[in-house]
Design a protein around this nucleic acid. Structure first.
Lengths: 151, 151
DNA sequence: CTATATTAGTTACATTAGAAACTATTTGCA
DNA sequence: TGCAAATAGTTTCTAATGTAACTAATATAG
């Protein structure tokens, strides 16, 4: 029952999953604060717009994959964005289940306002790190991303 | 790749806040999956237990600060943990608003089961990185954590 | 063909989480 | 003192989220 000392107490402030979570939430919240009020956009809605700004004509399923959101969240976000005329939806002629989504004129307008804010924000963050450090962070995140979590 | 941010398009998959969020959610979820079912503990409840395992006798407010949860979330988690007899609560004699929280016997028991799981998990993650990389990641997170987000 | 399985997306239900208002207590200061 | 402001924590109301069930369309096995 008695185990190594090091494995009987967890120091939350040094625990990687916890640190990532706190950092990530702080950053996301800080950015979201800048567009939520100004543009009445939830984080989920913004993510959908972000991928559509990157690539037009995606289906809801493709959006889900790229944003790492689940399909219900995408469906809801898409619904709201349609209501607000920020995106446009067709359905594929070949497969009428598949939606084809793109930013509307006004969606593009909003997108082009938010992108600089988001990038500026990221820049501010990254500026805290030296260029080599930035590259390292990038590489480390890449590695961690690829880990198979459930062996 | 070198950075060439046109500042008119955002590539979500290369956007630091987004990458952090996806990574962090994946990791937290994977760990939570291991104790939620087994011990009927939500992430919030586990966090409260984790800081109490680290330091006994904290008030709800101190728990909130250390876990980066808001006070409502702490209040609710504390309520559930009390119901399940996983923690014990007194109120300070000097200031009867201030609570004094600590793990109960059975709380300690559960704590001592989960800590190794969490640490093992973190270890698995970190093992993907070379020792120098681990130190670097640590240092980079430290730096990012300290950034003043709202200038 | 046609019955079954699969896929895309939505809806319904239950749970959780956050904001704001509220209670109780303590502090500050006129 | 005594009354406004501050603090600790809880409750309430509402919005966001996840799971499962559902609808519609397409693909496929027999």
């Amino acid at each position: 029952m008695t185990k190594k000392n090091s494995s009987t107490t967890l120091f939350l402030s040094q625990f990687l999953p916890y640190r990532l979570s706190v950092l990530s939430n702080r950053i996301s919240r800080a950015i979201a604060d800048q567009y939520e009020e100004q543009f009445q956009l939830s984080l989920a809605e913004w993510r959908v717009m972000a991928v559509l700004g990157e690539e037009n004509g995606l289906s809801a399923g493709q959006v889900a994959k790229r944003t790492a959101m689940d399909k219900v969240a995408v469906s809801r976000a898409v619904g709201k964005l349609l209501d607000a005329d920020r995106i446009v939806r067709y359905f594929s002629e070949k497969d009428r289940r598949r939606s084809i989504l793109s930013l509307s004129e006004s969606g593009h307008e909003i997108y082009s306002h938010i992108v600089p804010i988001a990038l500026e924000y990221e820049k501010k963050l990254m500026e805290q790190l030296a260029p080599e450090e930035q590259e390292l962070l990038d590489a480390l995140l890449e590695k961690l991303q690829d880990i198979q979590l459930h062996a």
